[in-house]
Simulated scan of single mutants.
Amino acid sequence: MNPSALLIQSMPVLLTGTLLTIKFALLSMVFGLAAAVALALMGISANRWLVRAARVYVSVMRGTPLLVQIFVVYYGLPSLGISLEPTPAGVLALSANVAAYMSESMRGAILGIAQGQWLASYSLGLTRTQTLRYVVGPQALRLAVPSLSNSLISLIKDTSLVSVITVTELLRSAQEVIASTYQPLPLYLAAGAVYWVLCTVLEAVQRAYERKLALPQKH
Rank of each mutant, 00 (worst) to 15 (best):
L215V: 13
V194I: 15
T18W: 01
S160C: 01
T131C: 12
Y122P: 02
L148A: 10
P146W: 11
P146F: 10
E176P: 01
L7D: 02
L94M: 11
L94S: 08
L126N: 11
A120D: 08
R142V: 15
L50C: 10
P184W: 00
I153C: 05
A53C: 08
T168H: 08
P138C: 12
T131D: 15
Y74H: 14
A140T: 10
Q9P: 05
P184A: 09
A34H: 07
V194M: 06
S59Y: 09
L26M: 13
A190V: 03
A193G: 01
P3A: 15
F31Y: 11
V167H: 09
W49G: 06
T200V: 11
Q9G: 11
P146E: 11
V205P: 06
F71H: 01
A120I: 11
G81F: 12
S10V: 08
G32L: 08
A53Q: 01
L26F: 10
Q139L: 13
N150R: 06
F71A: 02
A53M: 13
I82P: 10
P65E: 07
A191F: 01
P216L: 10
T131A: 14
V164I: 14
V205Y: 12
E176C: 05
M102D: 09
E176H: 10
L92M: 13
R133A: 11
G81S: 08
A53K: 02
G32Q: 04
Q183E: 13
V51M: 09
Y209L: 15
A54P: 02
Q217F: 13
S173A: 15
L94G: 00
I22D: 03
C199Q: 04
I165W: 13
R211W: 05
Q139D: 08
I22Y: 02
A46T: 12
R211I: 10
S83H: 11
A174W: 00
E104C: 07
Q69P: 01
P65S: 04
G125A: 13
L6K: 03
A35P: 03
V197I: 14
R48I: 07
A96Y: 04
K212G: 10
P12T: 05
I8V: 14
R207D: 09
I8L: 14
P186Q: 05
S154T: 03
L152Q: 02
A34S: 14
L213Y: 09
P216C: 11
G76I: 11
I153L: 12
S95H: 08
T21Q: 00
A38D: 00
C199I: 06
V201H: 07
N150F: 05
L161R: 02
R172I: 02
A179P: 06
L202D: 04
M102H: 07
L198A: 01
G32M: 08
